[in-house]
Simulated scan of single mutants.
Amino acid sequence: MSGDFFEQLEIPDPDVNLGAGGGTQAEQTAAIMMGFEKELMDHRPDVVLVVGDVTSTLACSITAKKLMVPVVHVEGGIRSGDMSMPEEINRIVTDSITDHFFTTSELANENLRKAGVEERRIHFVGNTMIDTLLKQKPRFTKPKGALFEGLEAGDYFVLTLHRPANVDEEAKLKATMEAILSGTGSHPVLFPVHPRTAKILKNLGIQHPRLHYLEPLSYLAFNYLVQHAKGVITDSGGITEEASVMNVPCLTLRDNTERPETIDQGTNELVGTDPARLKPFLEKMLKGDWKQYQGIPKWDGHAAERIVQVLYDIYQG
């Protein structure tokens, strides 16, 4: 789907594509490091900027530091405290060798301070994901098809599930789906299905007149559905950020979150992975008795501008 994102979000094609997709996490990490090392040796940069907590974030950080190239980390300092998540390992290792940190929240700043990072290396700039959301919001597009034409704003739920804690155990996934269908009243439930989840759902044979399985959607189509939903049920951290800024009620089916600001100042509630906990939250959501977005500092669409200015001041100023 990466090609679709480049096209839809009007992102220029990359100058270099390492072509390191596929394989195990170790195989991906090795392929990225080998390809990136060659690129750095052929075209040595002043600094390497890595974003988020994915495999390439970790791999490129290690490669750059071993070649004595400074590393800056966008979304530095984020922590879930859950070492069973590959993303948490990527965050911790990357932050341990990062030179400068661009952070999304005061809590991330505090995490870095507790780890001994000097204040001069911490730069509170905001959230680049929200930059994208606010820029693209006028371009959100209703998906095509009879199902979507018949939907009314505020009259359906959006569901996403992909984390192993929710989908790998068939009995638990079945109980979760039953709890969601039981607790969403007469409203349709739109479920864009992640490939890993689709295989397990097929084995379970879960069907319901209000449950609509969808192919993975584009960024613009998916966020159109989120923007107009009655509520969102998810185990994705990024979706909680977007739902909060769009003031859409959101439930997170996880036992922890690296984005607590979406709970404290956003529209998100952390439910946990026990399906039995869903009922009271869904009842509250159905009644429309939900907290409102309070505004999260610097989630204003200008994070990238702040990052560019800091980079200029440090490396060119």
Rank of each mutant, 00 (worst) to 15 (best):
E7D: 15
L9M: 13
I11T: 13
P12E: 14
D13R: 15
D15G: 10
D15Q: 15
L18V: 12
L18C: 12
G19P: 05
A20I: 07
G23Y: 14
T29Y: 10
K38H: 15
D42K: 12
R44M: 07
V48S: 00
V51M: 06
G52S: 06
T57M: 02
T57I: 02
A59F: 06
V69K: 05
V69N: 05
V69Y: 06
V71P: 07
V71N: 10
H73A: 04
G77N: 08
S80D: 05
D82I: 10
T98V: 01
D99A: 00
E106R: 13
N109T: 13
E110P: 01
E110I: 06
N111S: 07
N111K: 09
K114R: 15
G116L: 09
R120K: 14
R121F: 10
H123I: 08
F124I: 00
V125S: 04
M129F: 03
T132C: 15
K135L: 04
K135V: 03
K135E: 07
Q136P: 00
P138S: 05
P138N: 05
R139F: 15
P143N: 09
E149D: 15
F157Q: 01
L159F: 06
L159G: 03
T160Q: 01
T160N: 03
L161V: 09
L161C: 07
L161K: 08
E169F: 12
E170V: 04
A171N: 08
T176Q: 03
L181V: 13
L181D: 11
G183R: 13
G183K: 12
G183M: 13
G185N: 08
G185P: 04
F191W: 07
V193A: 15
V193Q: 14
H194G: 12
A198S: 15
A198R: 15
I200K: 13
N203G: 03
Q207M: 08
H208Y: 13
P209H: 14
P209A: 13
R210S: 15
R210I: 14
L211P: 04
N223K: 06
N223D: 07
N223Y: 12
A229G: 02
A229Y: 01
G231S: 02
D235I: 10
E241I: 04
M246Q: 11
V248Y: 08
T252Q: 03
L253I: 04
T257D: 07
T257F: 10
T257Q: 10
T257M: 10
P260H: 13
E261A: 08
I263R: 06
T267I: 08
T267F: 06
N268Y: 11
L270V: 08
L270E: 04
T273A: 01
D274I: 05
P275T: 08
R277L: 14
L278T: 04
E283Q: 12
E283W: 04
D289C: 01
D289G: 01
Q294M: 13
D300P: 00
G301N: 02
H302K: 10
H302F: 05
A304F: 03
E305A: 12
I307Y: 02
Q309D: 10
V310G: 01
V310E: 06
L311S: 00
D313C: 00
G317H: 09
